[in-house]
Amino acid sequence: MKIEERLSLLNYKTDKSYEHITVNPNICEECPDHFCTFACPAKCYTIIEGKLNFKYEDCVECGTCAVACSHGSVSWTNTKGGHGVKYKYG
């Protein structure tokens, strides 16, 4: 099963007014490895036309990218107000 299909099984309560994770495009521009794209299990980090694209809406709040990015680009906070992923099994 493709990752996109797997993600489509999940329930989210997306916070339209708060992006809990942000990246610094200037740092990503210079990034030698783009390890975030391999590490993120929800494929939130992709390279589009040579540029890093980050999509917080699919994030499952696993915490991986906070460790994976070794260049200080990722600032990671918890979602607020019960927003974000809602597992039914976990």
Binding site: M1, R6, L7, L9, L10, P41, A42, V60, C62, G63, T64, V67, Y87, K88, Y89, G90
Partner: peptide
């Protein structure tokens, strides 16, 4: 049937 996918550190 895959019913959920999840991930966590």
């Amino acid at each position: 049937r895959v019913d959920e996918y999840s991930a966590h550190l």
